[in-house]
Nucleic acid binder design. Structure first.
Length: 715
RNA sequence: GCCAGUGUAGCUCAGUGGCAGAGCAACGGUUUCGUAAACCGUAGGUCGUGGGUUCAAUCCCCACCACUGGCUCCA
């Protein structure tokens, strides 16, 4: 229910501090390991991309001068720079950068031309074998193994070319800048491990990232912008504002504690969601955080997703019983896989070329063998049933839920359902737990405990389009409230080759539901991109992608079709014709999870929340601690408080300017300043965190305005 | 999980093989002021945890726990 692809080095352009909403970069993020670009694509490379791509060659040149054994793989330009993947004995660390950059500068100063040489495939293979490709010279005992592999990927008939600068020759289709001297300004930025072709099982390479620009000014601007983005980082602002804490020692990594001010954000969002969902005909439910193992064997999440779930809790205390259950588990596993094999074989048997398809033409022998097959299958099924029964008597295993859908399915199953009950929309801010890899945790954006703005809509096929459209409309409504203008809707579909593996094996249902979703999207005039092979295992989905301050891409919201799991739970409703039918299910989370959504909002607003969301809405500040002033100010505080405004006061003797400064640093949305002049006029002076002094206004007017702005959730 | 880096006061960061430092915040006093930072003082630490080397370790070495930037993953 939650995905997000990382987008390396891409940046959100949000240098202005003045409450500009954060927007995704205009360009598409580079894929993790770029698909092979066609020659056409390559010719579209911008000047900047050519500079960066050329800089990657210069980097390789420098590396080879320092470590001649280096072998190079990919070295493309990316969103904000370039990288080159390489393999060598020496482990590069940032301390090496100075040395490498010095060599690179020499190559740039030499101003060598980038010469293109077109060669035959045979010639290229020979050069790769002699270690010449991606090298400064021949290296007879060190063949250019990655280049050899890359050569294999170049289609027959496509020209093969080298690019040469100085002694360095690389297999490359270009294009490049004319000379190394055209690389205006560059800097190496980081080093990381990367897998060859992004394959975890493949060799692990060292990846050096760098960036390059036309000139020093542009490079400096880029780093300045990076600094700006860091100031907006939700982890930094979260600490400054006291929104959340992550106590890795006592609570655990990835499990944020919501501090009082962060809890305000959480509860304001929940209030918004509850109002919106109530208006849209949802009903609310509540479910436990745990479920028995059977829940997830039935839903199909186990065993495939077990790795992303917290390890199970075993309530079987007796050691003997436990080992017995282990045995039963193994027997079950064996029986199940045998059954799958048998069924597959049975299909083959019935559809086999040499096997007659009609019963009348079956020989006695064949008939007998088919009957034996059936008996075998039945025997296995009965074994499985009895093993499951046996297992039930041997204590229970519980899992922390990683998603709410199965619980909601059981709520659907808790009462008999009629077509008149549909669509049934079950909503819950459910708390889920996912055992994300340690290295993947990222502030609030990627966590292990998460509160989802979840709901499941059970509906008939006829109702589907309207329901799906209504969900999309809800997204758009929310995005308007938050001033979220640029995001990307990603429609994820299945891939035929994954049927039966990554995806439930229902080719027709896939096609049907994907067509339905596509139709809704087109009819609603929503801009989207369609991505194959990214669907959930139970159906197609739409994800909404946004970008964090430092440029990571995240799924902020999701809307998914599920045509598979309700059937696994045997969910049915009684239709008009008195038959039992399985409902379709829409999983949706327009506000994603509290963790990610608030993480995103913090960066989106740079901590300067609109009044309705601001943890500190109003602070009343007196010019000094004069008693008359305080007596004038107190009823204003009381009135705001009585109207549920988050207001506090500073009547202390601290110098006035310091009191203003304190409130500003806290990001108090509205400061009501009261001095002698205000008191005499029955006024207050308004100062906004974003907007500065607004002058004196009658106090009743100011209070009314504050209440109205909160009520309408004014941006 | 993998690669590289980091871990010193609540925060931002200095620092050294030989008594642990600053600014801000906190606390106590003084200050009575018109829109972003008044002054004086006090307190605050097992230098991430555990082990090793050493007469002596916050510093050097090893392991672990976390964090940061990537990679992989992401129902």
């Amino acid at each position: 229910m939650e995905t997000g692809k990382s987008c390396k080095n891409c940046l959100t352009f949000m240098a202005e501090e003045n409450q500009q909403p954060s927007n995704p970069p205009s360009a598409q993020p580079e894929p993790a390991n770029p698909e092979r670009k066609t020659l056409d694509d390559r010719n579209k490379m911008t000047e900047l991309e050519r500079i960066r791509h050329s800089c990657a060659h210069v980097l390789a040149t420098a590396i080879l001068r320092l470590w001649p054994d280096a072998q190079f793989a990919y070295g493309p330009p990316v969103e904000n720079g370039f990288y080159y993947d390489l393999e060598m004995k020496h482990r590069i660390s940032q301390e090496d950068f100075e040395k490498i950059e010095a060599e690179m500068k020499k190559e740039i100063k030499a101003n060598n031309p980038f010469e293109k040489v077109v060669v035959t495939r045979e010639q290229a293979i020979a050069d790769a074998q002699s270690g010449r490709l991606g090298g400064l010279a021949e290296r007879p005992d060190n063949a250019s193994k990655f280049k050899l592999d890359l050569l294999k990927q170049i289609p027959e008939g496509e020209p093969i070319s080298y690019f040469k600068n100085g002694d360095f020759i690389d297999l490359c289709a270009g294009p490049h800048v004319m000379r190394t001297g055209n690389i205006g300004a560059f800097k190496l930025t980081s080093v990381a491990a990367a897998y060859y072709k992004g394959d975890e099982k493949g060799p692990q390479l060292q990846r050096i990232y760098g960036t390059a620009f036309k000139n020093k000014t542009a490079l400096d601007e880029y780093f300045k912008m990076l600094e700006e983005a860091k100031r907006r980082d939700h982890r930094k602002i979260g600490a400054e504002m006291g929104l959340f804490a992550i106590d890795t020692e006592y609570v655990g990594p990835g499990m944020p504690l919501w501090l009082p001010k962060g809890t305000i954000l959480v509860e304001e969002l929940e209030k918004l969601a509850k109002e919106t969902e109530f208006a849209a005909g949802y009903v609310r439910v509540r479910t436990p955080h745990l479920a028995k193992e059977k829940m997830y064997t039935t839903s199909g999440h186990l065993p495939y997703y077990a790795e992303s779930m917290f390890p199970p809790m075993d309530f079987c205390e007796d050691a003997e019983q436990r080992s017995l259950r282990e045995q039963v588990n193994q027997d079950l596993l064996k029986a199940r896989s045998e059954l799958v094999a048998l069924k597959a074989k049975g299909e083959e048997f019935e559809l086999g070329i040499n096997t007659p398809t009609t019963r009348s033409t079956l020989s006695t022998q064949e008939q007998e063998s088919q009957a034996a097959f059936k008996r075998d299958i039945e025997a296995h099924e009965s074994t499985i049933r009895s093993l499951e029964h046996k297992k039930g008597g041997l204590g229970s295993v519980y899992y922390l839920k990683a998603m709410n859908c199965p619980h909601h399915h059981r709520i659907f199953a808790a009462e008999p359902r009629s077509y008149r009950d549909l669509p049934l929309r079950l909503a819950e801010y459910g708390c889920c737990y996912r055992y994300e890899q340690l290295g993947e945790l990222f502030g609030l954006m990627r966590v292990r405990s998460l509160n989802m703005n979840d709901a499941h809509i059970y509906c008939t096929e006829e109702q589907f389009a309207d329901e799906f459209r209504a969900v999309n409309d809800m997204y758009l409504k929310y995005f308007k409230i938050f001033g979220l203008e640029k995001y990307q809707m990603r429609f994820s579909t299945h891939a035929a080759e994954g049927l039966g593996k990554k995806y439930v094996n229902e080719p027709e249902l896939w096609k049907k539901t994907e067509d339905m979703v596509r139709k809704v999207l087109i009819e609603s005039g929503i801009n989207y991109v369609e991505v194959a092979n990214e669907a959930a295992f139970y159906g197609p989905k739409i994800d909404v992608q946004v970008w964090s301050a430092i440029g990571r891409e995240f799924t902020i919201a999701t809307n998914q079709v599920d045509f598979a799991v309700p059937a696994k739970f045997g969910l049915t409703y009684r239709d008009k014709d008195n038959s039992n039918k399985t409902p379709l299910c829409i999983h949706r989370a327009p506000l994603g999870t509290h963790e990610r959504f608030i993480g995103f909002l913090i960066e989106h607003y740079a901590g300067n929340f609109p009044l309705w969301l601001a943890p500190d809405q109003v602070r009343v500040i007196t010019l000094n601690d004069d008693e008359a002033l305080i007596n004038y100010a107190k009823p204003i505080v009381a009135e705001l408080r009585a109207n549920m405004v988050r207001v506090d006061s500073d009547f202390s003797a601290t110098p006035f300017k310091a009191k203003i400064s304190n409130a500003e640093q806290l990001r108090v949305h509205t400061m009501l300043v009261i001095g002698g002049r205000d008191m005499e006029a029955g006024a207050v002076s308004v100062r906004l965190h974003h907007g500065g002094p607004q002058g004196a206004k009658p106090k009743a007017e100011v209070i009314a305005q504050i209440l109205a702005d909160i009520k309408e959730r004014k941006a």
